[in-house]
């Protein structure tokens, strides 16, 4: 593990595996530990996971970011400092929104692009769920088809301080809210035509937050026709519901497109 400095904040960068770098921008909640999903990916690629502001390992710099442009700027800094300029990039949920923005606005930064259930589009006829207006008991089944997978991920890692861990989770929710609140159209549709990298759109068929039908909305607007894959039976956090299937879909796309 190493850290890179951006605007006075230290951002954790995890790196495991051999071969070409594969950047990964985490989804809702971020990564509290090296998960089975990351482990699967690192079997074939050198997986590099920089932490976004406010997400676990990402410091508290989210308080300085006021709009989407601020987030895009800091994400560009983060990818460059993590050595990911020009690498393949995976982004999930809010990380997917940022990966799509980077690919649209700075095409040289991203070679191949994988978007897992990204935020950024909004259709009032089939709205993205308000995951910020939920009772705590509803959250696991909202994010995962197998709620126990989500609960396992939420649990404090052995040896960590319980209070600090809860604050870490809370900060990750706040960071996502800071970027996405109140979850509506973020203008990404005006830029999607600029994405010309080979791309994969990956969705859990049971996504209860960003409906799987959004894959078509993204694909129709992108500058180059992406591949669309569904992870059957998985929810929004496909990486928790089906770590192997998700990693395998990503790796096979990256292999093929090469």
């Amino acid at each position: 593990m190493r850290h890179v400095q951006i605007g006075g904040e230290a951002h954790r960068v995890w790196e495991r595996g051999q071969g070409e770098g594969l950047g990964l921008l985490a989804g809702m909640g971020g990564f509290g530990s090296w998960t089975p999903f990351l482990e699967c990916l690192s079997g074939e690629r050198r997986v590099v996971v920089p932490s976004l502001p406010g997400f676990p390992g990402g410091g508290a710099g989210h308080h300085k970011l006021d709009d989407l442009l601020d987030w895009i700027g800091v994400t560009l800094d983060l990818l460059e400092k993590a050595g990911l300029a020009g690498s393949d990039l995976v982004g999930h949920g809010p990380g997917g929104l940022l990966a799509a923005e980077i690919a649209a606005l700075s095409p040289g930064m991203v070679r191949k692009l994988v978007l897992i259930a990204p935020f950024g589009l909004f259709d009032p006829a089939e709205p993205v769920a308000d995951c910020f207006a939920r009772r705590a008991s509803e959250i696991p089944s909202l994010f995962c088809a197998q709620p126990q997978a989500f609960e396992r991920d939420l649990a404090c890692p052995p040896g960590d301080d319980e209070v600090e861990w809860q604050l870490t989770r809370l900060r990750a929710s706040e960071a996502a809210a800071r970027l996405l609140w109140p979850i509506g159209d973020l203008g990404l549709h005006k830029r999607l035509h600029r994405i010309v990298s080979p791309a994969l759109l990956l969705w859990g068929s049971e996504d209860r937050i960003v409906p799987a039908s959004y894959a078509k909305r993204f694909a129709d607007a992108m500058g180059r026709r992406p591949e669309i894959r569904s992870v059957e039976g998985a929810g929004h956090r496909v990486d928790l519901d089906a770590p192997e299937a998700t990693a395998s879909a990503i790796l096979s796309f990256l292999r093929k497109a090469a």
């Binding site: 207006a133 939920r134 705590a136 509803e138 604050l167 809370l170 996502a176 809210a177 609140w181």
Partner: peptide
């Protein structure tokens, strides 16, 4: 209770 605790409304110090 869905509307009681939007993330970030309560500061970390207060939590």
């Amino acid at each position: 209770a869905r509307f009681a605790a939007p993330p970030g409304y309560t500061s970390e110090a207060t939590v």
